[in-house]
Nucleic acid binder design. Structure first.
Lengths: 152, 152
DNA sequence: CTACTATAGTTAGGTAAGGATATAAATTAG
DNA sequence: CTAATTTATATCCTTACCTAACTATAGTAG
């Protein structure tokens, strides 16, 4: 009892978390916080970027093209994404063995987040992104502009 | 020359980074990767969420309402956000001293990213977010539904 | 048989980022 | 003087992540 009271007291100090409603429905968890729990770890969004825009599917494709990732972290991230049902793992019994990771519908649904992220840098950090930024063109960029993200 | 060739060789193995164009402009950096460099660290997006949607401005507001943040990390993140020009720090010589952090236009431009993140969880993890999810209402949720995110 | 290739990872050991808690600086109230 | 408030910083410790080497499996070349 005393312990419980102490805990409650601590919670009052530390967890004056906001309660809120969305379209008349009470929330028990902030949706941004929840999404961060799924895609907030290092490399997760780059992995999804490569699957969504570059149509990559294989371990070594990710390893060789994702900026500074290492095999251990890649392995862990792939397992997390599978657990959260954003991707599925498929084994092909060829030689050498081929393993492919493909997106679920839930995984594909992250595309608008990536598009908005791309859009932000294209508009507000254009000198970091473009070799020769053209202000006239940059003004007209939309989220759809990013859909062509090709290897070549 | 020889050195350059060796470097190229290494790059071919490790950095077969994709080259791509957006609306006719060559890119030197992936815009998603660039955005992640700005908002990809732990707590950064929650801090921005509280500034954008809850209109919070002060250190202790963040400290008491952001899920499990600690003062050290909060302090570091605020400095990073200021350095990246997403927020500005203003000192009021009252007693006790009051310091406020407010969003720049660049910082406010992150709102669509947060909205898409919220939307994802509201649609695909509704049982994690809502106390009593109503499928009929969830179908009609748009990014604007999240704009009411209130303390109370 | 051994040696070598390729794919898809795992293991060991170190560095960096983040967490918990205590404390500091500045200022005024009592 | 002590206490209280706000905005942090300092210290110590744990977890997350990085680097490099290695494993497993299967086929191919000599």
């Amino acid at each position: 009892m005393t312990e419980q009271k102490l805990l409650d007291g601590d919670d009052n100090k530390k967890r004056e978390t906001s309660h809120f409603m969305i379209d008349g429905m009470n929330c028990k968890c902030c949706p941004v916080f929840n999404t961060l729990g799924i895609i907030g770890k290092k490399f997760t969004l780059l992995l999804l970027r490569n699957m969504i825009f570059l149509k990559q599917k294989r371990f070594n494709e990710f390893l060789n093209s994702i900026e500074e990732i290492n095999p251990k972290t890649l392995s862990i991230r792939l397992k997390e994404l599978e657990k959260d049902r954003l991707i599925k793992r498929e084994v092909f019994n060829e030689t050498p063995v081929r393993i492919e990771y493909y997106l679920t519908e839930k995984g594909k649904a992250l595309q608008p987040i990536l598009e908005q992220m791309a859009l932000f840098s294209m508009k507000f950090c254009c000198e970091m992104v473009f070799e020769n930024p053209d202000p006239a063109k940059i003004d007209k960029i939309t989220s759809k502009s990013f859909r062509k993200y090709s290897t070549a």
